[in-house]
Design a binder for these strands. Sequence first.
DNA 1: GCAACTTTGTGCGTGCCTTCACAAGCGACT
DNA 2: AGTCGCTTGTGAAGGCACGCACAAAGTTGC
Lengths: 245, 245
Amino acid sequence: MTKPPQAGSDDTTAERLRSIPEASVARLAVYLRMLGELVEQGAETVSSDELAAVTGVNPAKLRKDLSYIGSYGIRGVGYEVSALQHRLELALGLNHRQAVALVGIGNLGHALAGYGGFSGRGFPLAALFDIDPDLVGIHINGILVEHVDAIPAVCSEREVTIGMIATPGPAAQGVCDLLVTAGVRCILNFAPVVLQVPREVELRKVDLAVELQILAFHVARRNLNGGQPSSLNGHVVNGSGGLEA
Amino acid sequence: MTKPPQAGSDDTTAERLRSIPEASVARLAVYLRMLGELVEQGAETVSSDELAAVTGVNPAKLRKDLSYIGSYGIRGVGYEVSALQHRLELALGLNHRQAVALVGIGNLGHALAGYGGFSGRGFPLAALFDIDPDLVGIHINGILVEHVDAIPAVCSEREVTIGMIATPGPAAQGVCDLLVTAGVRCILNFAPVVLQVPREVELRKVDLAVELQILAFHVARRNLNGGQPSSLNGHVVNGSGGLEA
DNA sequence: GCAACTTTGTGCGTGCCTTCACAAGCGACT
DNA sequence: AGTCGCTTGTGAAGGCACGCACAAAGTTGC
């Protein structure tokens, strides 16, 4: 299977990609980052147990996740770090860069625009937008902030594939519609509203206020238990992927 | 609350809280926010179908979620908005405010510190920390930035219950240990590393780079399908809770 | 070349979450 | 009061994900 007697790696990829569970995709991204660190540390191979330990995942689950992308592990040895890294990048669609547009240069938008990790990970920020005249025209990290009205023209011209919305809630739906009009088919929404999109658009949402409330719930639960860690405390749950400051 | 193990009317809350599925808790927070908007719009009652529509959730799932907190719906009518809102706040532990400490005033940390939605939702920022001498001593949103070394003293003094880590990856574990030492039992981690915590500490992770990679995966999947939305496209997935810019 | 050890890949049981479908309950209207 | 229409709450079924445990496969040592 792994030794390519044929160059069939392509249809294999296509077939498998369809059937990867959503939960596994999220973890694959985490494995990929850890592999990057392992490469820097000069590791050549890594076992599922080792990689599972540093990513905080069950080893069997990790192996199953990797099996979805047709993994290239060597029994008795482990995985070749750089090969696995390359394989993961391919599976996650990082082989060709995705241009990203960010709308809403407020508090959070500014932080996102200044975040260096995007372009470093294959997601170059191709455009920034805001509606505030004081912001339009300035540069952040060398990128010009343009007016929201320019979204359709600019996005289709620069072949933006991913849009991030960091506007206040009320403005989000309008911005979303503009992005969809511009041909953007994947949107990451930080505004605290539920957006309506056509079926062909993929939408993900990140809501920090909700994240805090989930934590607050656990504080409350713990207090009800009398502060005593009952059998099931100490959970570690991850919502999604990391951002460096 | 040092309730006896069996305290008649109150044990309903305590018993049910324990058994709420994690997935439901996340949605309860979303319902709560939408209820807030409905209150502003002057709505007095809302049906499960209506609330499900605006939150993008299956109506039956919504009703089951509400049933976990012992809901007070009226058959044939719906839910009384303000009563349900109050009930949700109680269930999510928002009846008494949780002091929050934020460590790492970089790009993202600055955005988080400037976000007004936290204190407005029962999570006042009680302390800011950084290790950079240029940042220590300044004020953000009227809150003093203190040195990381002061974490144990300040956090226990101000009864911080929730910690947010927005430092660069390498610094996160050290900061995390300090927070735990200070008695913080709930931590929201934005740094792209897997933190180790004692069992009694609740840890959640938000990783924006992973979020983007999940979107990129779907772009890749779509391209493999020839750009044609196969039967299962158009997913709407939410990672977690929103943040206004 | 053989045996012992290591690690992958996966079949399978278990439990959680989602969704359907319907009975029970409540209000409105006559 | 009785009936009709609407909405909640939940039993049950299906699907998904997790994790154990083991066979297959490769490596190391003799």
